[in-house]
Design a protein around this nucleic acid. Structure first.
Ligand SMILES: [Mn+2]
Ligand SMILES: [Mn+2]
Ligand SMILES: [Zn+2]
Ligand SMILES: [Zn+2]
Lengths: 142, 142
DNA sequence: ATTTACATTAAAATAATTCTAAACTGTTGA
DNA sequence: TCAACAGTTTAGAATTATTTTAATGTAAAT
């Protein structure tokens, strides 16, 4: 199946029509051979570079959220003013480099599986994420 | 030592003078026998209820951030528009109830200790946090 | 008591995100 | 084929959390 068909399928499955703008977003998100992390701002900058015509912020937000809802993108929990997204939607954890504000994958094999002994009555576990914050070892003396 | 002296000490150690407003914030944060989670908005509402005089939002933000920097408060990573803080500054993990937007502690004993087999060269681990998102088991059919 | 440094505050600024409403385009069925 | 409809794009406005500003007030040092 051609990339274009793959993108169209993903869009249709997300209840979105395959428009010019959305196909361009797909190309940026899903054609690289490596998965990656991005903010809406990152994605918009990449799109502006690759694209002759402008693409509106609202369209980027809408499309990313639709993909997230469908499970084609994942949002990462970080205390930050902006949201981070991940094209790697498999279960995995993250390092967050506080110096560079960069997310780094931590595969399932690099961390022992999390065993939770408590449960919340009436509630089901939707996700379990480990976030490991790292920084250069400056002994941060207040 | 009286509560008042404890608050004054915490403030001084955070390089803050013990003013009327800040002592009130301390009372709300540090007098309950149980630790709790809050947003700036929560805290402001509590203060408004307890207080005759108004306290400015800027003061709440400044004081909370100073306490966080000193380690008297902890910020919790959640994908949300607002920041969550915790008066429990010991190492522990969290459940986040997506229905109610409520944080629930998950003590160290309720989760096996996290063993990380990977490290980032030149970087030191600052924190390891597990966030378990839960929700009522509605089978969320897109 | 006077001086100084720090604090409080209302209001403005900033920044991420969402909403609005008008113009546009893909899709469908007559 | 093509009108009609439903969904889409967009610029800009609105919203919301947070930070900054700058004028005024207060704690602490002398
Ligand atoms: Mn923040
Ligand atoms: Mn968000
Ligand atoms: Zn990742
Ligand atoms: Zn907690």
């Amino acid at each position: 199946m051609s990339n274009l068909n793959i993108y169209t399928k993903k869009l249709r499955e997300s209840s979105l029509r395959p428009t010019r703008q959305r196909l361009k977003i797909c190309e940026v998100l899903f054609s690289p051979d490596k998965t990656f992390h991005f903010t809406i701002n990152d994605l918009t900058k990449i799109l502006e570079e690759k694209l002759s015509e402008k693409i509106s912020l609202a369209t980027v937000y809408n499309t990313v959220h639709a993909f997230k809802k469908k499970g084609y993108l994942k949002e990462i929990s970080i205390n930050s003013d902006k949201s981070y997204f991940d094209t790697n939607v498999t279960d995995h954890h993250h390092f967050f480099d506080e110096d560079t504000n960069e997310l780094i994958d931590c595969g399932d094999k690099e961390i022992d599986s999390i065993n939770i002994k408590k449960n919340i009555t009436g509630k089901k576990i939707k996700s379990v994420e480990v976030l490991i914050k790292v920084a250069t070892d400056n002994q941060n003396q207040n």
